[in-house]
Computed example of a mutant assay.
Amino acid sequence: MDTAATGLTFRDATDADVDALVALIESAYRGDSSRVGWTTEADILEGQRTDPEGVRQVIKSPASRLLTVEQDGRIVACCQLEHRDSHAYFGMFAVSPTLQGAGLGKIVIAEAERLARAVWDVTEMHMTVISVREDLIAWYERRGYRRTGKTTPFPYGDERFGIPQRDDLQFELLVKPLV
């Protein structure tokens, strides 16, 4: 899909995109570069957010797609969509820190929701967010997602998900009806 009004091109990721996608995701959430934007997790998690293997798994999975967003030939955002029965899972969402706060995230999530409805005919979008990320959860709530109160433990000890800097991390399920 090409969104001429915004200069954005949406497409599925390929193996050739893996390194650029890992760099984008890491820059949006970890380390000093992430502090340019507002989605940083640098104060609660160190280490990696993802790796080439994790990104490649999403690209290769028949139930998933890794939506890649380009502007002027450069990858500026991405998100994972995974078909799970009557709902889709939304994850691996990243927007370049230098572009955060300008409305790009709203455009990407709206397109992800549209695609999930159109391609899989699902009725809900699900996602999990680290429960202490109140600002991020509030952003999703403004997009129509609701907190469910259902939580799952953070995978402490599995450095593929980062190195926690606090002991109260867990994931909370957020849900939005897609009508």
Rank of each mutant, 00 (worst) to 15 (best):
E26R: 02
G157N: 05
V76E: 12
A138E: 03
A94F: 06
T98H: 06
L8N: 07
D17N: 14
F161N: 04
L178A: 09
M92N: 11
V175H: 08
D32S: 14
L104Y: 00
E46K: 12
M125A: 13
T14Y: 09
V18Q: 13
G157R: 07
M127V: 01
R143E: 00
D32K: 13
K150H: 04
G91H: 08
L81D: 12
V76T: 15
F154P: 10
L115M: 08
T39W: 07
A5M: 11
L115G: 09
G105P: 02
L178V: 05
L178Q: 04
A4S: 08
S131Q: 10
D85K: 12
E26Q: 10
T6D: 15
R147F: 05
H87Q: 11
D2V: 11
A102S: 04
E53F: 11
E172P: 04
R166L: 08
T98S: 07
R11H: 12
A102M: 01
T152Y: 05
D85S: 11
F161R: 06
R166N: 06
F154K: 11
A28R: 10
D167R: 05
E159N: 02
I130L: 11
D167C: 08
A4R: 04
M1K: 06
V36I: 15
S33Y: 02
F90V: 14
T68A: 15
V36L: 12
R11Y: 09
A118K: 06
R35E: 05
V179E: 06
A94P: 07
L173H: 08
V55M: 11
Y29Q: 08
T14K: 14
S86H: 13
R160S: 14
R114F: 01
E113N: 00
R114W: 00
V108Q: 04
D19A: 15
M92Q: 13
A112P: 02
W120I: 11
A112V: 00
V69E: 01
V129L: 07
T40C: 07
V95M: 03
L174M: 12
R142Y: 01
D135S: 08
P97A: 01
H126V: 03
L8T: 07
R117E: 03
R143P: 00
L24Q: 06
